[in-house]
Design a protein around this nucleic acid. Structure first.
Lengths: 152, 152
DNA sequence: TATACTTACTTGCACTTGCAACTATTGCAC
DNA sequence: GTGCAATAGTTGCAAGTGCAAGTAAGTATA
């Protein structure tokens, strides 16, 4: 196997992942626009729906964005009445985030829309293909993550 | 096969692609930072390296961003002496883009760095796995693209 | 206890991007 | 040819994000 063919295969895959991400993200934005949420705002609401009372820093770390981004994103969500900051009883520096009932309702609606869209789009592959793809992607993610830790 | 398992498989894959994209993009930014280029600026230079004299609108369409983004990105590249706008002889509305020698040199350097990094990171999978992954991603991209055209 | 270091969050600033409005030019229909 | 729609590109504006610096509070060390 010639080195060149390997090289272009790697570049080709990188390009494919990039293109697919752009297409998926574009679809996500369209679907979520119905709820007036950006993908990142939706991600925060989802995290809170899964586990209430989380701290801003934790969510930021999970979503790979800096703290100030979360601060201002939560400012927006709070101004829209979707979440509420409450002081952490154990640490007076920290803020715990709670979903309001409006926030919960919107998150439920957004999740339904989003999940349906994702299922439809990922369903463009056969179930068997999906399973193989998931396995390979899982391995790639794990290795990339380790690679990042090693080289950071 | 229960519907629920399929649903979560789709969501899982969507998440995997998102996470992998974020990791790859982060790596790209780090590598390209050496050349003071953003991934998008690099993409424009690459397009020009491949085929000189392209028009702004064409490049924007290829990179899926609006015209004004390209206008200002090219403003920056031109200010840095990397590209040059020249009037289109056939259409007085249009501008043709040319790489300067500095632009060519920087693009060559950035490509070398970028390609090496991509090969290393995608090389975290076995060659066989890479081939299967490329096949599945290719199919997914094609189907997503058609899906977008149908539903837009 | 005092001092220094870390952590949680916020704020100021700069940068990039999308959207909408605008100008100039082209091309099509009549 | 005249008028009208489409196209190429630019500009003003608003929004979102990262970085760096700042504040307040917790933690560790002497």
């Amino acid at each position: 196997m010639a080195p060149l063919s390997l090289a272009s295969l790697a570049l080709q895959q990188h390009r494919l992942i990039h293109d697919i991400y752009v297409l998926l993200d574009d679809g996500d934005r369209r679907v979520l626009a119905i709820t007036r949420l950006t993908p990142l705002e939706f991600a925060v609401l989802q995290r809170l729906d899964l586990e209430e009372g989380r701290r801003l820093t934790d969510i930021g770390a999970e979503l790979l964005c800096v703290k100030s981004t979360i601060t201002r994103l939560v400012d927006r969500l709070e101004a829209s009445g979707l979440v509420q900051r409450t002081p952490d009883p154990d640490d007076r520096r920290a803020q715990r985030l709670l979903l309001t009932s409006e926030g919960y309702a919107l998150c439920t609606k957004a999740s339904a829309l989003h999940n349906a869209a994702v299922e439809r789009r990922m369903g463009l592959l056969e179930p068997t293909e999906q399973e193989i793809l998931a396995l390979l992607l899982e391995k790639l993610r794990t290795n990339l993550h380790r690679d990042l830790s090693d080289n950071a």
